[in-house]
């Protein structure tokens, strides 16, 4: 579980994340949604430790970021897995090498054990046939699955995904969403996903926070989001013509 309290983050006197507080639940897929530029990525990077908040507190399973020194921050990062928007796979490495990479760098296991663990992670995302392929030889959906395998290979306590569906067709998006949700349940991890994809919201939004101009505007579940009377949320949810038509039948 990750609890954030009054997080504020500014760049060049412009406040990107403004006084956001919430709790991201363990074993559930937590979604941060909002329009582009609403501060989702900056908030996620604060949670990852890539940005230091100007003020506020982030509590990782009872341990505050304010009480952490550099070495405990490094250890915390080893408990985090991240799926980047563009997958961020290492171009010069094959699929198996990409997945083995965190273990090779950070664990004391021997080469055989590392390969075995990496193979299990790749099998989990059903990419057994792509072991020796380079990222450039894979489709966008396959690259995302490799990124998920790399993120889970260290058995993380926290999984972060920055717009995992970006650039994917709706069908592949759902497969990726489902995979992330299954992994969250299977490993009982705290998963936080940045998204503006309404399919993801409907499919896997067990806990949703909605950001507007860096501020938390609404919080709830995928069942509640369609019933809310919050104007900003309904404007966002029913922004497409298709969903506007669907709304008429709800």
């Amino acid at each position: 579980m990750i609890e954030i309290k009054n997080i504020i983050k500014s760049f060049n006197e412009s406040t990107i994340v403004n006084n956001v507080s919430t709790t991201f639940l363990k074993g559930k897929t937590n979604l941060i949604i909002g329009q582009s530029g609403s501060g989702k990525t900056v908030l996620l990077k604060c949670l990852l430790g890539l940005h230091t908040p100007d003020s506020g507190e982030i509590i990782y399973d009872g341990v505050s970021n304010k009480k952490m020194n550099d070495s405990s921050k490094t250890l915390l990062r080893r408990e985090m897995g991240m799926v980047f928007q563009g997958s961020a796979l290492f171009d010069s490495m094959t699929v198996i090498e990409n997945v083995m990479f965190p273990l090779t760098m950070l664990s004391d296991k021997n080469d055989e054990e590392i390969r075995e663990k990496a193979e299990i992670a790749i099998q989990r995302v059903e990419l057994e046939k792509a072991y020796d392929k380079l990222p450039s030889e894979l489709s966008g959906g396959m690259q995302k699955r490799v990124a998920i395998a790399r993120a889970i290979v260290m058995n993380p306590k926290y999984l972060f995904c920055d717009e995992p569906n970006s650039g994917l067709d709706p069908r592949t998006s759902i497969i990726i969403d489902k995979l992330i949700q299954e992994i969250t349940k299977e490993f009982n991890i705290t998963t936080i996903i940045n998204s503006h994809d309404m399919n993801s919201v409907m499919e896997i939004g067990e806990k949703i926070i909605f950001l507007v101009d860096g501020e938390k505007n609404w919080e709830g579940t995928n069942k509640e989001i369609f019933k809310t009377t919050n104007q900003s949320v309904t404007d966002f949810v029913y922004s497409s013509e298709l969903l506007k038509k669907v709304k008429k039948y709800l």
Binding site: T74, L75, R77, R78, G86, A88, F90, F160
Partner: peptide, 17 residues
């Protein structure tokens, strides 16, 4: 630079490397 643009450097940082 390409590693920076494609977030590979961020990936290294997130891993604690």
């Amino acid at each position: 630079g390409t590693m920076r643009v494609t977030e590979q450097i961020d990936a290294l940082e997130v891993m604690g490397i």
